[in-house]
Design a protein around this nucleic acid. Structure first.
Lengths: 159, 159
DNA sequence: GGCAGTATTGGGATATTTTACCAATGAAAG
DNA sequence: CTTTCATTGGTAAAATATCCCAATACTGCC
């Protein structure tokens, strides 16, 4: 374990910084500082602290799903035959390797997992099912629901 | 409508650029160029073209959900009383305003919408339901499923 | 094979931006 | 009022992005 990093509460300025960077991380320090009402130096230091504390986890580019030809989004509900930790871990490891799976949640209720999967078209989704998902051991049931359209998609957590 | 931007197929280098920037947009042009086997100039021009064509849509910072105290993730299945375009649009507009709703999909099958919502705790989720979601007109049914843990969460589309 | 036309690349100069340092300011406690 | 601590703001140096132009590779065509 590395050194302990103190985590005081985020104040209003920190939250504003997070909100802004969550919507556009290409703002210059000058622009960001202006928007939050600070000068460049303290603004820069706050951003660095948020990174060091692990509040800001990464900086990424987002890509248009249609531009990549990924026209199919599917939600898959999965039930395992057994729910021992060993089985859950094995499932999680397999899922994590597959790029088609963007999200996977362990759920309450009568389904164990909920997955969001993208594919170019129905046949490549079928290939994903046949060659990958259904070949996993210990799956009791799979149920696919297709998304007709993405009404909202945001990565920005409310601050 | 602005000028037409020609969209030739993405070649192997473009895809590599997209894969790299989807995982770390803070790479310098020099680092990115090295990794894709180009010098800075052509690499820079390719990135700019990907932005202009709308393949790269934005650059954002990602924030740790737990660090913000958002411990609850919920998937909500919603059925509307009617599914006329007018009703769908009204629902979509309302959803889009609420920061708690990170994702919303129009679905096939017996549910109209699937939402992913985050909240600090169960009581603030309850407040979201009572004060926002259930106050919308035209909703026939709401069904919440809670995520126990996030097994995988990725924004990086497969390229 | 050779040739013209087109698209892509690479290097270098310049403008922007990030980053580190240090003095100044403001708030809290005695 | 004074001391102490945390935060701020300005400035300069280093790193990076961006633009321009010549050189190279590629394509279609003869």
């Amino acid at each position: 374990m590395t050194g302990f990093i103190p985590m005081p509460d985020l104040d209003a300025i920190d939250r504003k910084i997070l909100a802004l960077l969550q919507s556009d991380s290409r703002l210059t320090m000058q622009e960001l500082a202006d928007k939050v009402g600070l000068s460049v130096s303290p603004c820069h230091r706050r951003v660095k602290l948020l990174e060091e504390r692990g509040v800001i986890t990464r900086y990424i580019a987002t890509v248009d799903q249609k531009a990549l030809g990924l026209h199919v989004s599917v939600f898959i509900s999965i039930k395992l035959a057994r729910q021992k930790e060993e089985d859950l871990n094995r499932f999680a490891r397999a899922i994590s390797k597959w790029d088609e799976v963007l999200e996977c949640y362990l759920m309450t209720g009568n389904r164990d997992y909920l997955l969001r999967v993208v594919a170019a078209d129905l046949s490549s989704y079928e290939a994903f099912l046949k060659n990958k998902l259904t070949r996993l051991d210990g799956i009791a049931s799979i149920e696919s629901s297709f998304a007709l359209s993405q009404v909202k998609y945001s990565i920005a957590l409310p601050v």
